[in-house]
Nucleic acid binder design. Structure first.
Length: 523
DNA sequence: AGTGCAGTTGACTTT
DNA sequence: TAAAGTCAACTGCAC
């Protein structure tokens, strides 16, 4: 009986339990599916498929070194599996558990039903630290460490190719698939070789000032690890990266403290905590797939859904809101497929609060624009930055303040909005404040060369803030927020908006203790 | 040298 | 991973 190893978003041969187990069991057929109904989903764009194709190129080469040939097929999972079944009879199916979008979830349910009906055993291995059918969030943090502690698996050393007479479709160009959009020439390259090079340069060169430099879009593209897309498609496993962090930290701690360049240890610590958060967020969508579609806290149902404004959404998507920092970030994202975390939060916050748009359509747009789109991180994050989780405080970003903080000279804005190139720094983040004669002098007439702001930042923020807090003050708000916290909340007291005070008075301490559960939710 | 005061800073609270 | 407001302590300076 042959062993079909179904590669999904785990495009590597190291630290790959399904491949390892299949190789130890019998002849192996490595399979990758281009599933038209999934590729046509509104969260998929051409850059994703092009990146996957680069991953598949190195995966195919790596499998070849084991004596295995990658079979790819364009077709729906059920049809392809049935075809294989028809040719070879029953087989064993091996894969990772996937925490994907609603469409892959439904697909997996159909595959499971088909497997049961056809006597095919489907062995799924856990991905990262994500726990399927998690009962108790309190124990999750320990599970992360448990999962990460073991050494990443080496690639299999012995493998036997299964002999199946099916033609491979090879690497399929995006033009032949029902995918939206175009590839981005400036996006990151994919594949294991690039992934390892990115990891190496981060730990040895780029990551020294990660903790500080991650906030500004000027420095983040270089100072961040840039492994997010490699993790999303599995050319690196989270555990491999965690072990690389630990190894690097041990190396630095083995040196005399004054020989370690400043910044490295704080940066590694900060990076490791984000690897923890990576799985923490995916766990939320795994535990509750409805997060992709509807507000986590029901008190927000109907708040913005009917306020859809096509003109505002188009302006936001095209980087034409008239707010230079918003537009520059969106234009960088559109061109490169990447923007740093703080600016992603700002883009979502601006759409949800200042433009008062429901998060669902903007989330789909960003899913297509983020090369590193990972559903389990994306939807919980979008909801958090839109204020609909109920367990996080309202975090409304002021695009002018963020501009001053993260781009003090205006260099970032000028790079992505050339028409603002000659505008002096005093006006660069609020060009509408320029008198007419200066607008003409600097070659940037508002309404002609660059849009007037689509909303008044102060008034829009005021409206959003008051509406959000009125909703939060509703009678049953806390009760449901408590329930959401039980299922999804972080148990780390320093995280998810829960502040740990350094000092407090006797009275404050007593109050805090008597209402600890409530304050931990709403601080 | 001490006092009054405007302006600044930082910790903490509220929205 | 927010921003704005409050308040008290502190600072620099004129007198």
């Amino acid at each position: 009986m042959i062993n079909v190893v179904w590669f999904k978003r785990d495009l590597r041969i190291t630290d790959h339990a399904p491949l390892m187990q299949a190789c130890a069991t019998g002849p192996v057929l490595p399979l990758y599916l281009y599933e038209p109904s999934l590729i046509a989903q509104p969260d998929v764009s051409a850059q994703h498929v092009a990146f996957i194709n680069q991953c598949l190129t190195t995966l195919r080469a790596d499998l070849n070194t084991l004596g295995l040939a990658l079979l790819t097929r364009v077709g729906e999972a059920l049809a392809v599996l049935a075809d294989i079944h028809h040719r070879v009879g029953t087989f064993t199916l091996w894969s990772f558990e996937e925490t994907g979008n609603g469409a892959t979830y439904q697909r997996d349910k159909r595959v499971l039903a088909w497997c049961r009906a056809n006597g095919v055993a489907w062995h799924e291995s856990p991905s990262g630290a994500v726990v399927r059918r998690l009962k108790d969030r309190d124990r999750w943090s320990g599970i992360w460490m448990q999962r990460m502690r073991n050494e990443p698996l080496d690639a299999p050393t012995v493998a036997v190719q299964a002999n199946v007479q099916i033609d491979s479709h090879g690497i399929v160009a995006t033009a032949h698939l029902p995918v939206s959009g175009c590839d981005k020439p400036l996006r990151q390259r994919g594949g294991r070789t690039v992934a390892l090079a990115d990891l190496h340069s981060f730990f040895n060169v780029r990551g020294q000032h990660y903790r500080i430099a991650m906030s500004s879009p000027l420095s983040a593209a270089d100072a961040c690890s840039r492994i997010s897309a490699h993790l999303a498609y599995g050319s690196l496993s989270v555990r491999e990266v965690v072990h690389a962090v630990w190894q690097q930290r041990a190396l630095l701690q083995g040196q005399p403290p004054d020989c370690v360049e400043p910044g490295w240890l704080a940066s590694l610590k900060s990076f490791e905590s984000r690897l923890h958060w990576h799985c923490h967020f995916i766990q939320k969508l795994e535990s509750d797939p409805s997060i992709e579609f509807s507000n986590m806290h029901r008190a927000y149902a109907g708040l913005r859904e009917d306020n859809y404004n096509a003109a505002l959404q188009t302006a936001w998507r095209n980087g034409e809101t008239g707010l230079p920092m918003i537009d520059a970030c969106m234009r960088m994202l559109t061109a490169t497929g990447w923007i740093n975390f703080r600016m992603r939060a700002m883009l979502v916050s601006f759409s949800s609060y200042h433009l008062w748009q429901h998060w669902r359509e903007p989330a789909l747009h960003l899913a297509r624009e983020f090369l590193d789109y990972e559903p389990g991180i994306h939807y919980p994050q979008v909801q958090m930055q839109s204020g609909t989780t109920g367990i996080n405080t309202v975090r409304m970003y002021n695009p002018i303040k963020q501009a001053r903080d993260q781009d003090p000279t205006g260099a970032f804005v000028r790079r992505w909005i050339p028409v603002l190139g000659r505008v002096p720094t005093d006006f660069i983040f609020e060009p509408w404040l320029m008198p007419d004669n200066l607008q003409r002098e600097y070659g940037c007439v508002l309404g002609r060369d660059y849009p007037l702001p689509v909303i008044d930042v102060i008034a829009a923020a005021e409206h959003a803030r008051s509406t959000m807090w009125v909703t939060r003050k509703g009678n049953s708000f806390r009760k449901e927020a408590q329930a959401i916290f039980e299922t999804h909340g972080s148990r780390n007291p320093a995280r998810e908006g829960i502040k740990v005070r350094k000092t407090r008075s006797v009275r404050e301490t007593r109050e805090a203790e008597t209402s600890a559960r409530q304050t931990s939710l709403f601080d």
